[in-house]
């Protein structure tokens, strides 16, 4: 398979995740969509690692995976904290910090 296929698939997955962030309002699903975008980035990184015959891109993808895990842990902690404080689980209503 040409590596262009992987990159186009990665762009498609990234756009899908971006669409999810734009149209969904629940913070849980928005976190899921962030996962989709991070995974699309990982796919592109691995495709480039294959194109260069170099494993450095795989290390980069592994670090992205670690960062995604941290983001999920903190984000889910935030959602649980919001739920316990009886705050609305809707990103459009949580806007007291908006300028």
């Amino acid at each position: 398979m040409d590596l262009t296929w992987y990159l186009v698939l990665s762009a498609l997955l990234f756009a899908t995740g971006a669409a999810g962030v734009l149209i969904r309002r629940s913070p849980l699903v928005i976190l899921l969509c962030l996962e989709l975008m991070l995974n699309a980035g990982n796919l592109a990184l691995l495709a480039f690692a294959r194109a260069n015959g170099d494993e450095d891109g795989q290390i980069f993808a592994l670090v992205v995976m670690v960062v995604a895990a941290c983001e999920v842990v903190v984000g889910l902690g935030l959602i649980v904290a919001m739920y316990r404080r009886r705050l609305p689980l809707n990103v459009d209503e949580m806007r007291s910090l908006r300028g």
Binding site: M1, D2, L3, T4, L7, V8, A11, L12, F14, A15, A18, R50, A51, N52, G53
Partner: peptide, 23 residues
């Protein structure tokens, strides 16, 4: 966004994009 990314990817003319990568 997808169209823009695809144009960016396909227009780079990076060496090795249209191959299966090196051995």
């Amino acid at each position: 966004l997808f169209v823009e990314l695809s144009i960016a990817v396909l227009g780079t003319a990076l060496a090795g994009l249209d191959t299966e990568g090196p051995t």
